[in-house]
Measured scan of single mutants.
Amino acid sequence: LGPKYVGLWDFKSRTDEELSFRAGDVFHVARKEEQWWWATLLDEAGGAVAQGYVPHNYLAERE
């Protein structure tokens, strides 16, 4: 699936296409579209919880 990303700060969605998340949440990014990335929010087991657009500057690649 490629690298995983972690949320740096809490983010509250403003549209139906955006995905709310908390700092520390883990994502798989499917598409990078300039300022907004289409991402899947993952649970602790790595299963998909939700999908939506997230601001790229709120995520960091997980080491």
Rank of each mutant, 00 (worst) to 15 (best):
L1I: 12
L1M: 13
L1D: 13
L1N: 13
G2I: 14
G2T: 13
P3L: 11
P3V: 13
P3W: 09
P3N: 10
K4L: 15
K4T: 14
Y5G: 01
Y5S: 00
V6W: 06
V6K: 04
G7S: 14
L8V: 07
L8S: 03
L8P: 02
L8R: 07
W9Q: 08
W9H: 09
W9L: 09
W9A: 07
W9Y: 14
D10M: 06
D10H: 06
D10L: 12
D10V: 08
F11L: 02
F11R: 06
K12R: 11
K12L: 13
S13L: 04
R14V: 09
R14M: 11
R14T: 14
R14S: 14
R14G: 11
T15C: 15
T15P: 01
T15S: 13
T15F: 10
T15Q: 09
T15A: 10
D16G: 11
D16I: 10
E17Q: 14
E17I: 12
E17T: 12
E18L: 10
E18C: 11
L19Q: 00
L19K: 00
L19T: 01
L19G: 01
L19F: 05
S20A: 05
S20N: 05
S20Q: 04
S20E: 05
S20Y: 05
S20C: 07
F21C: 07
F21N: 00
F21A: 00
R22W: 07
R22I: 07
R22S: 11
A23C: 07
A23N: 04
A23F: 03
G24T: 02
G24E: 03
G24V: 02
G24K: 03
D25S: 08
D25F: 07
D25P: 01
D25H: 04
V26E: 10
V26M: 13
V26G: 04
V26R: 06
V26N: 07
F27S: 00
H28I: 15
H28S: 10
H28Q: 11
V29D: 01
V29R: 00
V29G: 01
V29A: 02
V29H: 02
V29T: 01
A30Q: 15
A30V: 15
A30W: 15
A30M: 15
R31D: 05
K32Y: 08
K32Q: 07
E33V: 08
E33I: 06
E33H: 10
E34C: 15
E34D: 13
Q35D: 12
Q35K: 13
Q35F: 15
Q35W: 13
W36I: 06
W37H: 01
W37K: 00
W37Y: 08
W38D: 00
A39D: 00
A39G: 03
A39K: 01
A39Q: 01
A39R: 02
T40F: 13
T40I: 15
T40A: 06
L41V: 04
L41R: 06
L41F: 02
L42Q: 02
L42F: 06
L42H: 03
D43W: 07
D43S: 07
E44C: 11
E44S: 12
A45D: 14
G46C: 10
G46T: 04
G46H: 05
G47P: 02
G47L: 14
A48Q: 10
A48F: 11
V49Q: 07
V49W: 05
V49K: 09
A50E: 06
A50Y: 05
A50L: 07
Q51I: 08
Q51W: 10
Q51E: 14
Q51V: 11
Q51F: 09
Q51L: 05
Q51Y: 09
G52V: 04
G52P: 02
G52Q: 01
Y53G: 01
Y53K: 11
Y53V: 03
Y53Q: 05
Y53L: 07
V54N: 00
V54P: 00
P55F: 05
P55G: 03
P55Y: 07
P55A: 04
P55D: 05
H56P: 13
H56N: 10
N57W: 14
N57G: 09
N57C: 15
N57L: 07
Y58K: 03
Y58T: 03
Y58A: 10
L59V: 04
L59W: 04
A60C: 11
A60F: 09
A60T: 11
A60L: 10
E61L: 15
E61S: 09
E61N: 07
E61H: 08
E61P: 15
E61F: 09
R62N: 10
R62I: 15
R62W: 15
R62G: 11
R62Q: 15
R62L: 15
E63P: 13
